[in-house]
Design a protein around this nucleic acid. Structure first.
Length: 949
RNA sequence: GGCGGCUUGGCGGAAUUGGUAGACGCGCUCGACUCAAAAUCGAGUUCUAACGAGUGUGGGUUCGAGUCCCACAGCCGCUACCA
């Protein structure tokens, strides 16, 4: 590789420029208070999602987003902004800990080594980061403030009336008891079934379960005492305050769906034969009530049975003696089932009758109470009223167990053959909105003992819902309820490599560690192996845990999310030891208040579009409520780059019998496919793109259609062996080529396959730019080209292309449309190549706009052709509008919408004369011959369309 | 099942508000240079011999549709018994 002749000497000048940017701190960002800070400059905060420094180093997916932000940052800087573009490390995490388990090496050592590799790689790509602001979530100086923020949550509660967090000191002043306060803290202790993984030795958040299961780890349900964060209090604000943000609609929707607001009602059902009643038949009035949540209170007249989750606390109480054995067996079976088994939709509904009955509050009817695992304890009240006619799941269940089905809604547009009476739904449930019927059933109102009647008949679903809720509320039988899917955030882990909770326990109470003692760091352990029991790893360090005054430390640690929830704040003031961010820095980087968010542009993978972004927004809102930050959102604009897939591969072909024969080895020299299992050569076929014909998702060889070759791009992965290492690309083609290629592949947000040939293409383009300025002499040295001359540009067409390029590149950068910007610069370069001579001034304009994309190459050329200073410090160029103007325009002439001819007219030609010219051309006459001209449409500067028939 | 996205040459993709479909790059073909090759430079390249046809399929709106509307199909992503 090293003796391969380079098309331009990037291997010499790229490291030199990187060293110079480092030494001169070219991309250092002045903060308020610094000597070189200029308050008049507007701020621009462009942020990358910081990486987890894994052992395998940078992946080509990383530079995709990083190059995009680097281009924006460099351009904005030259456009007069004070640009904050920092980088850091999300350095807590499981892999370093698992490595420690294997080797006994402290995770900090592994982490430091990995960070060094990542940093070297990032620098080799020439990114203009302000490395003075580098942060790592594992730094003691950072942990300290992560713990401090946790204590802010711990010492706050959510004031429902104000709709915001407030310090618990206010409650203490009001004389609240410790117990009352602990019940409302934003960080609280909760005993609940959680996802425990014995082999990882930790509890996982619901959201993380599938990820780790997928990697082959065991995850089971267990009731454990855990720390939780009360994010559910912010559910509504997390929806509402999303609205003004400049995020992709898809991501906003994803967050909204995750929070999952449902509007409905809570309805009370009286249990008519709970044990307490059975033992004391007179105590009917104090009978047990069970609340259900429903989004369709309008269907209450159609509720024919009730279902409780197997874990529902009243199951044991209401179950009759006859049903006890069956119920116990069912509950036990559900408890041992994994979530996966329970969630399997394809399986049949199961359930058991409890023997109990409930009274439907609207019609006094007695309905049976069942338990079934299709009702979840974690959502709503863990109990439902079943309306089989109007809910698919209830319908399926009722069918299976022979329960009554009563229709109470009919479609607004009755189906064909509808008689007007009730054809009980026999095929499917009708779950869409419609019109209420049978609510109440005919004649029923007269029989109501209290003379109360809730008549929904004839009302459309929305109105029927509202009326029913009002009716229930009036009688205390239920109330409107808004339910969210979002659950409180399980915040504790039992790992070693995470922030310890700054808390101690004494006599069953928890206490905050005093601020002066932060950061509270975990002690080194000799053995990092999980204990196998849910006891946190830190509990092994007895000396650390047991304090002289008899209290003990909390031994849980925080999840990896903790550090990434606020790192964007720390970059604004990374070394402040007195505050997590100074007031001045916060107020400057938060902006002028026109926009809710602090970060102007946030770029990072969509795998974080729900959790990380939601968690960071939650923390930011709490800090905002407590007066620590001025805006209520962290990220104004968010953008996620599309995944880069591996190179397209030829995977196999179909044999005569139609069976897929897979092969991995294609000998490109003789074009033979080798069968992977037998290793014998099956057939000789030359694979050549031109020989292939597309057919569905595979290709057919033109001369032998029986042989099919499938081309497919797949995710990069070690097991597939299609991972591209950025270091190799930089070695072979240079950093500028890698940067440019990743931006040229296609729209930033799109999923796209890697192509080595594509890298060669952009590398050739950069070489062409280089050769505009230099030519190689006999000695193999690059000397200034004779074509490049410091003379005024007399070539109007060339001047036009150059200024079009300045304009388009400027616009495209703002639109994040880098692929089209690059294409325009290629057009410009081709124009220079074909020109007689290269006028220096115009050539410099190209270098200026190419600079953010290919910073090394452009700086090198600039310096070698006598430029002073660095392009990076030059103001951004402006295009000359006059150069874009032309005297003549080419117009398209269409007849009936079809292109027939082209005409050239003066720029300011009158419409009438354009029409006359268009109608007069030979081709138009030919097309309109014998027809009547009905209409002539002239679109100025574009076309003429003649309508004739 | 639900929600979202996508579908344009041999390939990646362009067409910002409805106005020349296929920019730019890859690949391929031919030519120049070379003993030869690589590199480089130049010409060509949607399909079709041509008339014409053509942006997943069928319909609609419009002088004009890749772009807007309706229906359908295929692919990808997320989510999942959320009452």
């Amino acid at each position: 590789m090293s003796d391969r002749r380079k098309p331009f000497p990037f291997d010499e000048f790229e490291p030199a420029w990187q060293a110079r940017w480092d030494a001169e701190k070219t991309f250092r960002t002045p903060n308020p208070g610094d000597a070189d800070f200029d308050a008049a400059k507007p701020k621009f905060y462009v942020l990358d999602m910081f990486p987890y420094p894994s052992g395998s180093g940078l992946h080509v997916g990383h530079p995709e987003g990083y190059t995009a932000t680097d281009i924006i940052g460099r351009a904005k800087r030259r456009q007069g902004f004070n640009v904050l573009h920092p980088m850091g490390w999300d350095s807590f995490g499981l892999p370093a800990e698992q490595y420690a388990i294997k080797t006994g090496q402290h995770p900090a050592i592994t982490t430091t080594a990995n960070i060094a590799t990542f940093k070297r790689q990032l620098k080799s790509l020439g990114f203009g980061y302000d490395w003075d602001r580098e942060v790592a979530t594992t730094d003691p100086g950072y942990v300290r403030w992560t713990q401090w923020i946790f204590l802010q949550l711990y010492t706050s509660y959510f004031d429902e009336e104000a709709g915001k967090a407030k310090p618990i000191a206010e409650l203490e002043a009001r004389g609240w008891t410790r117990e009352q306060i602990d019940a409302v803290r934003l960080a609280f202790v909760h005993e609940a079934p959680v996802n425990w993984s014995p082999d990882l030795g930790t509890v996982l958040a619901n959201e993380e379960v599938e990820e780790w299961r997928g990697k082959g780890h065991i995850v089971e349900r267990r009731p454990l005492r855990q720390w939780m964060l009360r994010i559910t209090k912010y559910a509504q604000r997390l929806i509402d305050e999303l609205e003004p943000l400049d995020w992709p609609d898809g991501v906003k929707l994803l967050q909204k769906n995750w929070i999952g607001r449902s509007d409905g009602a809570e309805v009370k059902f009286q249990i008519s034969n709970s044990k307490s009643q059975i033992s004391n038949p007179d105590a009917a009035s104090s009978g047990l009530e069970i609340e259900v949540f429903t989004t369709r209170p309008d269907t209450l007249f159609g509720a024919t049975y009730m279902v409780l989750a197997p874990e529902h606390p009243y199951v044991a109480e209401i179950t009759t003696a006859e049903q006890k054995d069956a119920v116990d067996a069912y509950v036990k079976a559900c408890a041992t089932k994994s979530d996966m088994e329970r969630g399997d939709l394809s399986k049949e509904k199961t359930g058991v009758f409890t023997g109990a009955h409930a009274t439907n509050p609207v019609n006094g009817k007695t309905i049976p109470v069942w338990i079934a695992d299709y009702v979840m304890m974690g959502y709503g009240t863990g109990a439902i009223m079943a309306v089989p006619a109007h809910d698919e799941r209830d319908f399926e269940f009722a069918k299976k167990f022979g329960l009554a089905i009563v229709q109470v809604v009919m479609p607004s547009v009755p189906p064909a053959g509808f008689t007007g009476l009730l054809p009980p739904y026999v095929e499917n449930a009708f779950s869409e909105p419609g019109v209420a019927i049978g609510s109440p059933p005919i004649g029923w109102g007269l029989m109501d003992p209290r003379g109360e009647r809730c008549d929904l008949n004839g009302l459309p679903t929305a109105e029927a819902k509202a009326k029913m809720i009002a009716w229930l509320e009036e009688r205390g039988q239920g109330k409107r309820r808004i339910q969210y899917k979002l659950r409180d955030w399980l915040f504790s882990r039992q790992r070693y490599w995470g922030e310890p909770f700054p808390l101690t326990w004494k006599d069953g109470n928890h206490y905050a560690v005093p601020d002066a003692e932060l950061p509270l760091l975990a002690p080194p352990l000799e053995d990092y192996k999980p204990t196998g029991s849910p006891e946190p790893l830190l509990s092994k360090a007895r000396e650390w845990v047991e304090l002289p005054d008899g209290s003990i430390r909390e031994t849980n640690t925080m999840p990896q999310w903790a550090g990434s929830c606020w790192y964007y704040l720390r970059y604004c003031d990374p070394s402040n030891s007195g505050r997590f961010i100074s007031k001045e820095a916060e107020s400057y980087w938060a902006g002028n208040g026109e926009k809710p968010g602090m970060v102007d542009l946030y770029v990072g993978g969509s795998e974080h579009a729900v959790l990380h972004l939601l968690y960071a927004r939650f923390w930011h809102k709490v800090l905002h409520d407590l007066g620590h930050v001025s805006g209520n959102e962290p990220f104004n604009r968010y953008f996620s780059p599309g995944l880069i897939l591996g190179e397209m591969e030829f995977l196999g072909f179909k044999d005569a019998a139609g069976a897929w024969i897979s092969f991995k080895d294609v000998n490109e020299q003789d074009g033979t496919f080798t069968h992977t299992t037998s290793r014998e050569v099956l057939q000789k076929v030359v694979i050549d793109a031109g020989d292939l014909e597309k057919e569905n998702d595979y290709f057919v060889l033109k001369d032998d259609p029986s042989i099919r070759v499938r081309a497919k791009a797949e995710k990069m992965s070690k097991s597939r062996g299609n991972v591209v290492n950025p270091d190799d690309v930089v070695d072979a083609y240079g950093a500028d080529s890698l940067r440019l290629y990743e931006m040229f592949m296609g729209p930033l947000e799109q999923v796209k396959p890697w192509s080595t040939k594509g890298v060669e293409g952009v590398s050739r383009f950069l070489a062409r730019v280089w050769r505009l300025a230099f030519e190689e002499n006999q000695a193999g040295e690059w000397v200034r080209s004779a074509k490049i001359q410091d003379v005024p540009c007399t070539d109007k067409a060339l001047l036009k292309v150059v200024h079009e390029t300045v304009k388009k590149v400027t616009d495209d950068i703002a639109r994040l449309s880098f692929n089209t910007a690059i294409s325009q610069m290629m057009i410009c370069t081709n124009a220079f190549t074909q020109a007689e001579l290269v006028p220096l001034k115009e050539f410099r304009l190209l270098l200026h706009v190419l600079n953010p994309f290919a910073p090394h190459l452009t700086e090198e050329i600039h310096a070698r052709i006598g430029g002073t200073g660095m392009l990076a410090n030059e103001p951004w160029p402006q295009h000359d509008e006059a150069a874009l103007e032309t005297n003549e325009l080419e117009l398209v002439v269409q007849v009936n919408g079809k292109l027939r001819d082209k005409i050239t007219v003066a720029k300011d030609a009158a419409q009438a004369s354009i029409e006359a010219i268009a109608l007069g051309t030979a081709k138009v006459k030919e097309q309109t011959d014998g027809k009547t001209i009905r209409k002539v449409i002239v679109v100025p500067g574009r076309l003429v369309n003649i309508v004739a028939n």
